[in-house]
């Protein structure tokens, strides 16, 4: 059981890290705003994974679940607002190119 637990733990943490890195990479590199939002989403999901893992390891599964659900709720609101902003950008210029958002320089 301990072996399973630790194996599960390590797999999940590596998976979490992978998701994290994919999320950051996506956010950094893409020129498409929707993909940037997806990147944000991935980041947050990886963090949720970390939270649950932490709860699992220390045995506070109840607390971890509560935290994870709260996090998902907040995340939904943020993503909704972000998508709304991207929608407004689209209404301005009929494109969702991230290079549009580089006006405020210097």
């Amino acid at each position: 059981m301990v072996n399973d637990m630790s194996q599960l733990f390590w797999m999940c943490s590596i998976a979490g890290f992978l998701v994290f890195i994919i999320g950051i990479y996506g956010l950094l590199v893409t020129f498409n705003l929707i993909r940037a939002i997806i990147g944000l989403e991935l980041l947050t999901k990886s963090v949720t994974l970390f939270l649950i893992l932490a709860g699992y390891v220390t045995g506070q599964t109840g607390l971890a679940q509560a935290l994870a659900i709260t996090l998902i709720v907040i995340e939904v609101v943020v993503i909704a607002i972000a998508v709304g902003i991207v929608l407004c950008v689209f209404r301005h210029n009929r494109t969702i190119d991230a290079q549009l958002l580089r006006n405020i320089k210097g």
Partner: peptide
Amino acid sequence: KRLNTGNYS
């Protein structure tokens, strides 16, 4: 000023 390109990445 020049460092600040406006690119959020």
